[in-house]
Design a protein around this nucleic acid. Structure first.
Lengths: 334, 334
DNA sequence: TTGTAGGCGTTATCAG
DNA sequence: CTGATAACGCCTACAA
């Protein structure tokens, strides 16, 4: 492996000049630049990222903290992050957490001693210690679809989104509405459902009280969604439209409905939440959360804070919109 | 940020001793160790990962190369990789590729100048240059579910898997078999289908010729799977059992079948391929590819090559097995 | 515009 | 066992 010194020697210049060429410094003459470039080419030299990081005190890495059992939406967010990074030199350091203990660990280790220049915390609450530390050090950490008053964050207004999803079904004429909800935070067993508030607001606005037996808080995943739907359908006055807090749960619900002989949307309307590829492919009507944009905007935020440190923390909310596809219709006539 | 020198001073020892304590060297007396540990604690010192990497010439990082539009199975593999890393100090550098050009780029940049200690290449063919370089340098790169004669790799025998999947349906009594296949490599437009050979072998063994109009090579994703199934069903003698090369495609096929009024499995049998969470949740009968284990074993392989360089390259194949769930049955009686 | 020297924080190698 | 000291490869003043 040739080093910068080999290049300097081969080009007959000092290492300072080589370094300047490497970093596109304007303080090099054209002639010199060509000579150095030629030597670099000839030797097949590439600078060592580690030495470089060591020398200048930054790594060109962003750390991503993400729940490991996150469903497919995680991929969409990652895609957005990549979008923002595609023509930068940044690279991603991935840390996943499967439970609260691991969240603790990845939060504790995030960005220690400059191992990354910034961080993206996806879909989980940061630990208190993490919040203290990053706000103390001015370490650029942005929450994606998670909340904390003291941190940068980009997300959506879940209340409004859920409310509009429910209002859409109400507008279709549904009288009996159901909700299969999902917790806001995967690692907080007591965290509330993500759609509950908006759902109930919509019902209240329409002058209806929410029937508690039409609401379920389900575990993530299609199996739990299917189970919850079966429960709702087994009740005395089963809902004719159900809002589901995640795509995976919605797919489960869809399969369960069909398995029990219900036609969707003729007998039952279903609205998903998130909008992942498989939902799109299957024609699921969904409250679209712009996952990819979320990832992109969050990443751009980190980058801009990096470029201009000390900007005051400001949250950013992106709009949601209902993607009307093929799982909703008017209620069946009785 | 305190450095190792601050610790040394605080403990009244040399930095060599501190370093030895940090690295669990046996060459430190108990008394010294305690004294140093106390100073570390008191100062809240943590070693700088970058300086450390620079000093010892390794990074404790593994680079992961993965197609970005990979479906959910990517998450399963990543989970397996994490499993293997959970109580090591290794961390993951993620590189995704959305097309052949990006694959080229990530392959070119992978592990340059020791930015990572090893690499995992998931579900895509490495570039020729990459193969040359890593086999030249002895850089530990392991292919996960991809093939190259000169590289370490862990995967499954797709031919055998597909053959058994088809044989299972044949055994159920199906006469007209269909195949919705997926390309082996996402970036090779000309790469063959992953199940075709096994599928045709099974048919030949049963004394049947494959009907070309019962085979489709479809793009990844549920939409293409749905479309392909509709095509198969539209033919003059539609198949009564269909093998599908990926879970996402299978979900699409399942939805399409039901949408067109077919009951699964009474009217149509479906076998998926891969076995991801959503397929399990939905009761899809699947040829199970041990994705998580694949990731884990590949990672363990990298680690062991790292521990013992120069081991001769040896591929590793893991067994597949049919996960019988609820989408297969005997053919409908005519 | 260019070269030189010092510094970044560890690890590893030597004497002691 | 312990303490200096020399790498490690690059960046960046500073001096020329």
């Amino acid at each position: 492996m040739p080093t910068i010194m080999d290049v300097a020697r081969a080009a007959g210049v000092g290492i300072g000049t080589v370094s300047r060429v490497l970093n596109d410094s304007p303080l090099v003459s054209q002639a010199m630049r060509q000579r150095v470039l030629a030597a670099i080419e000839r030797l097949g030299y590439e600078p060592s990222p580690i030495a470089r990081a060591f020398g200048r005190g930054r790594t060109d890495k962003l750390e991503v903290l993400i729940p490991v059992f996150a469903e497919a939406f995680a991929l969409e967010i990652l895609r957005g992050i990549e979008d923002a990074l595609v023509d930068t030199d940044y690279t991603l350091l991935m840390r996943t957490a499967a439970n609260a203990a691991e969240r603790e660990r990845v939060c504790d280790e995030c960005g220690v001693r400059g191992r990354a220049d910034g961080a993206l915390v996806v879909w989980m609450a940061p630990t208190q210690a993490f919040v203290e530390r990053v706000s103390q050090d001015g370490f650029p950490a942005v929450l994606v679809n998670a909340e904390h008053p003291r941190l940068w964050r980009v997300g959506v207004d879940h209340d409004s989104a859920a409310e509009r999803a429910a209002a859409y079904c109400l507008g279709l004429g549904h009288e009996r509405m159901g909700l299969i909800d999902r917790r806001v935070d995967p690692f907080e067993p007591l965290s509330p459902g993500i759609c509950q508030r908006g759902f109930e607001t919509a019902l209240a606005t329409a002058g209806r009280a929410a029937a508690a037996d039409h609401e379920r808080l389900a575990e993530p995943g299609a199996a739990a969604g299917a189970f919850a739907l079966d429960e709702l359908l087994a009740g005395p006055e089963p809902p004719t439209a159900v809002i589901v807090g995640s795509e995976a749960q919605a797919l489960g619900a869809l399969a369960a409905a069909r398995a029990s002989g219900k036609r969707v949307p003729q007998d039952l309307s279903l609205v998903g939440y998130n909008d992942t590829q498989v939902g799109r492919d299957l024609g699921l009507t969904t409250m679209r959360v712009p996952l990819r944009e979320l990832g992109r905007v969050a990443t751009e935020t980190v980058l801009s804070v990096l470029a201009e440190p000390g900007m005051p923390v400001a949250p950013r909310y992106l709009p949601t919109e209902l993607a009307v596809r093929r799982t909703c219709g008017p209620p069946p006539r009785v």
